[in-house]
Simulated assay, not measured.
Amino acid sequence: MYMIVKHTHLTIIALTFIFFIINFVLTMKGSDKVNNKLLKIGPHVLYALFICTFVYMIIVNPLNLYPFVNGWASSKLGGFVLYVLSITFTLKWAKSTLWRIVGLISTIFWLLMTARLGFAHHLKSKGIVDDANAYLELGQSMLTGIC
């Protein structure tokens, strides 16, 4: 059951990114289709499902990785929050094309950093907080350099 939920979780992440790209393209074109009900509600449903699968995997996880106890799980949670904030910035708060492109780069960056952290098996098995924090510091410094 854990593997089914894990693959569902990864599929949800891919779908949130697909919805983001569709919304981004429509926003850049100035299309009225950006107000489509599915494009407005769909990502929120996916975020709720994402959180449900995250909670399930934290409760059932075989490695005993818990947010706020283990640096790896906390970093993953922080990466997700920054990913969603980047999406919000890009689609809602940014008013110029330049800032929307900066938001696009930020969104892709946080998705890739969080994915990279997800595949850092040595961090999961050892539970080393310093290495996980090093990933976050690297991400923050790169984002600061981009902006």
Rank of each mutant, 00 (worst) to 15 (best):
R100A: 08
L10V: 05
F54S: 14
G127E: 12
K37N: 08
L112A: 13
I128W: 08
V25R: 05
N133F: 14
K6Q: 08
L112K: 01
T107L: 07
K76H: 01
V102W: 06
L85C: 09
K29D: 12
H7K: 02
L91F: 04
F17I: 12
T27R: 07
T8E: 00
F119L: 10
L38D: 01
A73Y: 02
S96I: 08
G42P: 04
F119H: 11
L98N: 15
C52K: 03
M57I: 11
Y56L: 08
T88I: 15
T107W: 07
T107P: 03
L49E: 08
F80V: 13
F68R: 05
I105W: 06
A94Y: 07
L143K: 02
T97S: 12
G103Y: 11
V81L: 15
S75R: 02
V81F: 14
I12L: 03
I59A: 07
T53R: 03
L98R: 05
L39K: 07
L143V: 11
K29C: 12
H121E: 14
Y135M: 09
K76V: 12
V69M: 03
K92M: 09
N23A: 08
L46A: 14
C147T: 02
F119N: 15
R100K: 05
A132K: 06
S96Y: 00
I59V: 14
S106D: 04
V102C: 07
G71C: 06
V102S: 11
L65I: 04
T11W: 15
V25Q: 04
Y66M: 01
W99Q: 01
L136I: 13
L26I: 08
Y135P: 01
M57E: 08
I21E: 15
M3D: 05
N61G: 10
A48K: 06
I58K: 00
L39F: 14
V55E: 12
I146L: 13
K76P: 00
V129A: 13
L136G: 03
P62D: 08
G127K: 00
L77E: 09
L82W: 10
G118K: 01
K92R: 12
N64R: 03
L138T: 05
D130H: 15
F19Y: 15
A115F: 09
S31C: 02
L136W: 09
K29G: 04
L136F: 09
T90K: 01
M113L: 13
V45T: 10
P62M: 10
C147V: 12
N61T: 12
T16Q: 08
A132Q: 04
T11N: 04
L10T: 13
G30A: 09
Q140Y: 13
F50I: 11
Y47Q: 05
T11I: 11
C52A: 13
F19Q: 02
I128C: 03
T144I: 06
M3T: 08
A115Y: 14
F19W: 07
